[in-house]
Nucleic acid binder design. Structure first.
Lengths: 334, 334
DNA sequence: AGCGCTCCCGTGAACGTTCACGGGAGCGCT
DNA sequence: AGCGCTCCCGTGAACGTTCACGGGAGCGCT
């Protein structure tokens, strides 16, 4: 019979090691876990046997009997997007202080990968924190009974907790600042992954209207630096009179800074720029980026905190507590 | 008796749901896993009971019986360091194509956290990819029998596989380029987390000697942009004649670019700068960063590939295949 | 009436580990 | 001699799920 490539050799168990070393499985367990109550010679013999056989303990069997580990899943669309890098780092930090493990899933911004992740995640983790683009019913179907905390998404149902990002005042302050600097033609580079405009655009519109300026100078942009550059060209081609730009996020704004330089426009003199997110990255570019900044560490900490409450059955945080405020932070670019 | 905060309510099991719904545990399993062979009314009753009780299946029990999931641990010192962000993203991507799960541990660059991670990781994952600063014997003690692939570290023993970063030629090319541009006083900003100089410094020294220039203009720098700025000031204070700088990595180089601007030095005219790593970030700063660039995606893919071979018992890759070459990539800064 | 088939459900066993407990051997002390 | 203690080791049970298998009820067909 030809052995197929799929025929795994039967898994080595603790009993195989025990037999090989001439001891009981309990003694093997003692040797491997550095417990006492074992002779040092015996211990060495067991360790040698385990190594010779290539034994690896089953984490499932171990986890089943001593139920002391907690693992959460973190689902993000793109780890290389600095915003999600910061969120992930914050979540990892908050999880670490609780001794939790974090399985990270990067869905590459594709619905297909997100669906695939949702299908497998429930058997891997005890709770989920994430940024999802699928419908709530899809989410519900694959996370039955599991705590789920959404980030940056207005939760329609009460099934899921969600951390809300409130930038209304911050965006208002940003527009007010630009107007105070004398700008009257302020463009916005929104994201364009969705058909409908973003809530950040709505905040911008409201602020513009409140200051009596045109809120219609809007162009969709890819959520990358290149996308920001391209969108800036489009915006300036359509509206050359624009002297200030507010962007959906910092990555787009950084692309704007770069493109402005290529176009020979000095920032902030010829073009004022304000982003959104307040990434650490904004301090590295020239000029340093002004931004409606939010505290990503607080965001991660809040998400983990809520998961902890959901898991323990404690009183959960209400929607009014699950908010991260974004505030205007002025730097060189505006 | 006062209930202590530690008294968890006994975990709800499949049997509790079965009893509540008046069926057997197998029927509960069928309902929850969308298997057939179940009446739709029964299924709904089970689902309701499960929800009412707050039942969450044990992933350990499930994993124990159907052994089909593979999980690897990824240990990095700082996810916010863009180099490790890229490595992590690459590893996640490579793992995803294999259907593997990845638990990420950020050790915050602290030996204590690294030790803590090592202690718990063995019961959580099937293999480890990581960047460790501890000794090999410590590593060995806590990863007994588990495949381990180290990145960017010369493996002394044969116990561990390691992905080597070979920048010798790339650094030589960088120095050659600077010399060709007329630079004779080239400084280096090494990292200073360790007592001994880095291997990148050794490459730099060898290249400098080969070109007959002084290799002694070296200053240690923190692995941050601020660290790079501070180190540049120190370097220029001691050696005002320096006209070019090679840095341990891109983050330090970006700090150098920023500091040069503050000092009124134009890059590359007054100061040429070449980094190491080739981060995507380098394209966002002004001027775009020249760097001895390595392919982080290849690095991640290679690490995951080796883990797969170690786990399956296939022939493993030898040291000569576990190499990522870093090559000079010129951009605006030099 | 008897047979086979489909639909639906339940019971014993197994996955691989740790926990709880029991107990033998050897030694020192009274 | 008897007792207690330490050191070392082994056996049954349990963790909570899925798999394999058996089987009853109901229906249609010959």
């Amino acid at each position: 019979m030809v052995p197929t490539s799929g025929t795994e050799p039967r898994k080595i168990t603790i009993n195989d090691v025990a037999r090989s070393a001439g001891v009981s499985r309990q003694t093997v367990s003692r040797a491997l876990n550095d417990k006492g109550e074992i002779d040092s010679d015996t211990k060495q013999r067991v360790l040698d046997a385990a190594r010779a056989l290539g034994y690896r303990p089953s984490r499932f069997a171990r986890g089943l009997v001593r139920q002391d580990t907690m693992t959460i899943g973190l689902v993000i669309p793109d780890l290389l997007n600095p915003f999600f890098t910061e969120v992930a780092a914050a979540a990892l930090e908050a999880a670490r202080t609780r001794g939790w493990h974090v399985v990270v899933y990067d869905t590459a911004d594709r619905a297909e990968e997100e669906r695939g992740t949702l299908q497998v995640i429930s058997s891997q983790v005890d709770a989920v924190i994430g940024y999802f683009s699928c419908s709530e019913s899809e989410l519900e179907a694959s996370t039955r009974g599991m705590p789920v905390v959404l980030i940056g998404r207005e939760g329609g149902s009460t099934r899921f907790s969600s951390i809300r990002i409130d930038g209304e005042e911050g965006v208002h302050a940003a527009v007010a600042h630009l107007v105070a600097q004398g700008h009257t033609r302020i463009g916005m580079l929104d994201h364009h992954t969705r058909a409908e405009p973003s809530i950040r655009y709505e905040w911008f519109t409201a602020a513009a209207v409140a200051h009596g300026i045109d809120a219609g100078l809007v162009v969709g942009a890819d959520q990358t630096a290149d996308g920001g550059g391209t969108a800036l060209r489009t915006l300036l081609a359509a509206h050359p009179e624009v002297t200030a730009v507010f962007t959906f996020n910092d990555i787009i704004a950084i692309g704007v800074l770069r493109e402005a330089r290529r176009l020979g426009r000095s920032v902030p003199r010829d073009l004022a720029v304000i982003g959104f997110d307040g990434l650490q990255l904004g301090a590295l570019v020239e000029p340093p980026l002004s931004s409606v900044a939010l505290d990503t560490r607080q965001l991660g900490a809040l998400a983990v905190e809520q998961v902890a409450r959901l898991l323990s059955g404690l009183e959960t945080l209400g929607a009014e507590d699950l908010v991260v405020r974004a505030e205007l932070r002025l730097s060189g670019s505006a």
